[in-house]
Each structure stands twice: as structure tokens, then as C-alpha cells.
């Protein structure tokens, strides 16, 4: 999987020029198929893995805030993305799964007010609040009111790195040239399930990110 330093990418991106966001994905591998019936909610335990780290983030208005504000108080599903991502099994898949969960949660009264989705960029050089606003536009204007879906970025690599480090989300730069396009930021994409206390209770990778499983895990936490 593509990998490279986000901080290094900041420089590379500025040097290499920009590609528009949301380009068609490149040659996707077939996604992993869920070939099982997940255990029923509440029949298993989700252990405390580690506290979600805090840090400073920017909302879509460019206001600085503590990340903890968006990882406590509700059951939170958080993923890191960058808007230039074209790895079909990375950010676009996470985005698609979030849309699916958003729709499913909206139809579940017991959960919709107790769950928050958070999409956090790891490319502060490109993904400014304005870019994130465009990225989030459909969700915010067309899907609201509904399940809270928060889009965040950071003000700098200096503010981003401790957050990535705390979550264990590594990011690296692919230095292979991509004509006229920004470098690819490689990462083993993870999605984090965080309880209202701010404790990470499950971690998913996109290759095996099955909405039915995530929703059952959310319901399991709700029943605690």
C-alpha cells in the first residue's frame, strides 16, 4: 500500500502542483467481501484499547478547537483521509462506508443522536477548512439534519503529527512522479470506534471495514 511522510508531502505537494480532488479511483482491487453473519450486538465485549489522543484541530470555519470535543460525549467513528486520495481501498472506501453508516444511523432512532462521524484530514497543506468544506458540502447541506458528521483538518504538520502518532495512524509519501498530480500519501487506513468517554474500543482497516459489523459494535456500546 502506498506510504510516505505527510510532512514531507506538504513540501512535495507545493512543489509538484495540484490535482483536483475526487479524481476517479485507479484500478481498484476487488474489496474484501463479508462472508459471515456478525455476532449479535451485546453478545460480545469490546475492550478498552487506548484513550483517543487529543490535539488541536480546525473546523470548517477555520476555528481552532480541541479534538477531544469531537471524540467524547457520543459514540464516535473517526477516520483519517486526504481529499486527493485516489486509492480506491483507502479514503474513498472509508467515505463510502461512512455514507452508508450515515444513512443507516439516520434510520435508527435509538442511535442517530448518540453517534457522531468524524472525518479528519492528514493533509493540512492542501486540505484547508475551505477545501474540507467543499469535500463535505453534500453531507452538510443535503443530509442534514441527521446524524452528526464532522469534518476537521489541522493547521499545520506540527499540530497534525501528535494526533497521528497518538492514534497510531502512519502516513508516508510516495515519491514516484504522477504527471501533474500531487504525490500519493500512503497509509494503512484505519477507522476508530470511540466510546463517549473518549476510549478507543475497536479499530478497523479499510480492507475489512464492514458497515454491518461497525453498526453492531455501535449498538454494543450503546447497550453498555
Amino acid at each position: 500500500m502506498a506510504r510516505a511522510s505527510a510532512a514531507a508531502a506538504l513540501a512535495l505537494m507545493s512543489l509538484a502542483g495540484r490535482a483536483p480532488a475526487h479524481e476517479p479511483p485507479v484500478a481498484p482491487d476487488p474489496p474484501a467481501m463479508m462472508d459471515f453473519v456478525p455476532p449479535a450486538p451485546g453478545t460480545y465485549r469490546l475492550y478498552d484499547i487506548m484513550p483517543a489522543p487529543d490535539g488541536t484541530v480546525l473546523d470548517l470555519e477555520g476555528r481552532r478547537a480541541r479534538l477531544a470535543r469531537f471524540t467524547t460525549g457520543k459514540i464516535t467513528v473517526l477516520s483519517f483521509i486526504y481529499t486527493n486520495c485516489d486509492d480506491a481501498r483507502g479514503c474513498p472506501l472509508a467515505y463510502q462506508v461512512f455514507h452508508t453508516m450515515h444513512d443507516r444511523l439516520r434510520e435508527t432512532p435509538a442511535l442517530r443522536d448518540r453517534v457522531r462521524l468524524v472525518t479528519l484530514s492528514f493533509d493540512p497543506a492542501h486540505d484547508t477548512p475551505a477545501v474540507m468544506r467543499r469535500y463535505a458540502n453534500g453531507v452538510i447541506t443535503e443530509r442534514a439534519p441527521g446524524v452528526e458528521w464532522t469534518f476537521l483538518t489541522t493547521g499545520s504538520a506540527r499540530e497534525l503529527l501528535p494526533i497521528l502518532d497518538g492514534f497510531g495512524q502512519d502516513v508516508q509519501v510516495d515519491r514516484r512522479p504522477r504527471a501533474g498530480r500531487a504525490p500519493r500519501l500512503g497509509h494503512v487506513l484505519k477507522v476508530f470506534l470511540i466510546d463517549p468517554r473518549g476510549m478507543i474500543r475497536e479499530i478497523y482497516t479499510t480492507s475489512y471495514l464492514f458497515p454491518d459489523v461497525v453498526l453492531n459494535d455501535i449498538e454494543t456500546l450503546r447497550r453498555e
Binding site: A2, R3, A4, S5, A7, A8, A11, L12, A157, Q172, V173, D174, R175, R176, R184, G186
Partner: peptide, 10 residues
């Protein structure tokens, strides 16, 4: 960061 870590291939 760039000076500390070379940018590495995929």
C-alpha cells in the same frame, strides 16, 4: 522533517 527523513518510495 524533510532534512531528517528522506522521502522514500512506495
Amino acid at each position: 522533517v524533510l532534512a531528517t527523513f528522506s522521502i522514500l518510495p512506495l
